[in-house]
Simulated assay, not measured.
Amino acid sequence: MAAEESVEQQFLVRLLNGSTRCVRFASPRVLCEDLKARVFEIAGIPPSLQRVVTGTREIGEGEALPASRDASCAVLLRLRGGKGGFGSLLRGAATKAGQKKTSNFDACRDMSGRRLRHVNGEKKIKEWNEEAGLRQLEVVAHDYLKKESQKLKNESSAAEDIKKFREEAERKSQEVQEAVLDGLRRAKNKKRGTDGKRKKIDMDDMASKKLRIMSTGKDSDQELMPPIHTGASSSQSFEDPSVLNPSPEAVPSPAETAQPVEPVEPVVNLQAPQEPPPKVIEELSFDNFQSAEELETLGMDRLKSELQKRGLKCGGSLKERSARLFLLKTTPVEKLDKKHFAKSK
């Protein structure tokens, strides 16, 4: 009797409704399929839907239950689906009518339970760390290009300064040459004018001298010079006693020899530069002008003189003067506004 009791094996099985049944087996080694068949007989649960769990371990098909005194196990059902959560809610909301379809699943979890945004963030950080060398190379390349551009800019500015200096030097050289040539030309013209003036004065002296000779019949230069006698005339004068000792009757008196001489005024042929005849300014007629813009062709000075003649203000720009003078075409001077008249001093 004691041997039989030692051979039997019993299990305390907890069913789905929470009740516990004692199931006995004749053999100490009990398979999982045998326990499921006994539970099917007791509770009517099909073996394919049963799950046998002892403690924290699930007994699979073909495994033997652990043999021990008063061993216990629980029978559970297999459930469809898996763990739901916020991700499943988002996917469900996308299928509802009127809801916008979303593509952001950062709040979902992966198979290890981590949020997708955390996983993606780690990937981005890893990639950023791997690209640190490339970023350093970009910074070095940027600094190099910046230095090269600054160097080219300095060289171009220096070339522009040299070009400007050369142009300025060439222009100054041309100005100096033109100034020297102009000075030489003026000096030459001035010398020509002095020579011509001297020649003109000499010609005037010769003309006055000729007039004096024609009026007196004698040359003042010849009066100063002593008479020159030839040999025959000199011998004759010494042989003729009348020449050496003239009689008083033969010698004429000073009154008889004196002849009246009219005073002759010297003629100076100095032609004064003729002044140009005064320019005749025609009287202004407003019938020839149809607008104030046409009056602007007269110029600033003419407009000023016309305004002064009529006692109006003559200041301002060309446009203001022409507009002020054009008022007289339609309005008499007496009816003009006082602001157009010049202040009396």
Rank of each mutant, 00 (worst) to 15 (best):
L77I: 15
M225G: 01
V261M: 05
K163A: 15
T194F: 00
R171G: 12
D301E: 14
L298I: 00
L90Y: 13
G60T: 10
D337T: 00
L65H: 04
L116Q: 00
E334N: 04
P277R: 12
I201V: 01
R38S: 10
E170C: 09
S247A: 02
E223A: 02
F105I: 06
K210D: 07
E256K: 03
E148M: 14
C108S: 12
T102C: 02
S247K: 01
L145I: 15
H118G: 11
N288G: 13
A232L: 04
V7M: 15
S242Y: 08
P277V: 11
K199F: 04
M111T: 07
K123T: 09
Q308C: 07
K191P: 01
L307I: 08
T102K: 04
G82N: 03
Q222W: 06
R166C: 02
D106Q: 14
S291A: 06
R109G: 11
F341C: 08
R29I: 14
L65C: 04
L325Q: 12
L336P: 08
A26E: 10
K96R: 09
D337I: 02
S156G: 09
G55D: 02
E265H: 06
Q308S: 08
K313E: 13
R114Q: 09
A258G: 06
A71M: 04
G81Y: 11
V267G: 12
A132F: 03
I201T: 03
N245Q: 09
P66F: 09
L284T: 05
E41W: 10
S6A: 11
D205I: 05
T54I: 12
S242Q: 06
Q150P: 02
A207Q: 14
D106S: 15
P46T: 13
R115T: 04
E239S: 01
A37L: 15
I45P: 08
E239P: 00
V53F: 04
M206Y: 12
A43Y: 05
Q150C: 14
F25I: 13
P246Y: 02
L181I: 10
W128A: 05
N189F: 00
L284N: 08
S235A: 04
V251E: 06
K329T: 01
S68A: 12
D110C: 05
R109M: 13
T56S: 05
D204C: 01
G133E: 08
R80C: 07
E178M: 07
R38D: 09
N120S: 15
R171L: 14
L31W: 07
E293A: 13
F25D: 06
E4I: 09
L298T: 03
S253I: 01
E138Y: 05
V333W: 00
S237E: 02
K210F: 10
S48P: 00
R198I: 03
R115E: 07
T102G: 09
H118W: 10
R114P: 01
A43S: 07
A232E: 09
K172M: 08
V7D: 14
P28K: 12
A272K: 11
P263D: 02
R324G: 03
R186A: 04
E131F: 05
E130D: 06
E262A: 11
E170A: 10
E256L: 06
F105K: 03
G62Y: 14
E127V: 10
Q50H: 10
G193A: 15
E63R: 03
A107W: 13
T230A: 12
S317A: 11
R51W: 03
E239D: 01
K83D: 01
K313N: 14
K101M: 13
K209M: 10
N189D: 10
A159N: 12
